[in-house]
Write a protein that binds this DNA or RNA. Structure first.
Lengths: 135, 135
DNA sequence: TCCTAAAAGAGAACAGTTCTCATATAAGGA
DNA sequence: TCCTTATATGAGAACTGTTCTCTTTTAGGA
């Protein structure tokens, strides 16, 4: 909690109850939509306006506190995990899991160090790995 | 055009002017939204109902004639390129380009042949390469 | 040519997101 | 601690993209 407050002030953001609970929600939920976040806060903390949630999420993205997740759906999902990682996507449903693999990242870096893409400067490579989760 | 008709009948779909022009639009436009497709058809061919476009695009996806593009935006984009490929995403704007690289695909296949992901069966790996296009 | 299942059209409904503007509040300074 | 003010929030309207409903039209086989 003090941790979350620090993250806000590090970025020069005013500490408000809404911002604290939104950031907490993003950290505790897995790749949530704005609606997931709203429900989480309303049940756990107190009421919050939907507009506030969208605006705060935008601010957090601007400041690099969270990221958007890329999917082929028309709802936006958010991600609080900031270290470089990839995503495992279920081919059946909407389940998404984080996938961290430094060895793979090294292979990709080495590969694109040698093989340049014409007229393009790479900033970040993320894999979408689609498949089936076994239980 | 005869080509497009073949693709429809191969999948057991009735050949209608709407389907022909939607498929043509997806082939001629680069990762279009439904709205891009509607505008293209209205200007080039004739009027078409928006509901028809969405429904036909859905049918095409079901039959494997096109795919959705994954982005972090809340509009869905479609892709007519069916061979396995990756995407270069502009970090500034919405520009997306196809990236085909069989050598890379082989490296990834080999890598994941050795290194299994626990409780997950990979079906397809696509890279999102984010960066800057130079002109 | 006729018949019928399937497709398309029109627009209402819906969901997700953004906008507007009045009110409330965080946080720096007196 | 109390003011002050820039900034944030709330409430709900507006907007955008997508889906749904229901009627009319049409493709394509008999």
């Amino acid at each position: 909690m003090a941790n979350i407050k620090n993250k806000l002030s590090e970025k020069g953001l005013k500490i408000t109850p809404q911002r604290l609970s939104i950031l907490e929600a993003v950290y505790n939920l897995s790749h949530p939509t704005a609606d997931d976040i709203i429900k989480y806060i309303r049940q756990k903390h107190s009421n919050i306006a939907t507009g506030t949630v969208y605006k705060v999420l935008d601010t957090f993205i601007q400041k690099g506190l969270i990221k958007k997740v890329t999917t082929d759906k028309d709802v936006i999902r958010y991600d609080g995990l900031l270290i470089h990682h990839h995503h495992l996507h279920s081919s059946k449903d909407i389940l998404i899991k984080d996938y961290i693999d430094e060895e793979l990242d090294k292979i990709l870096n080495d590969y694109f160090q040698k093989k340049k893409i014409k007229n393009f400067k790479i900033e970040e490579i993320t894999l979408q790995i689609r498949g089936k989760f076994k239980k």
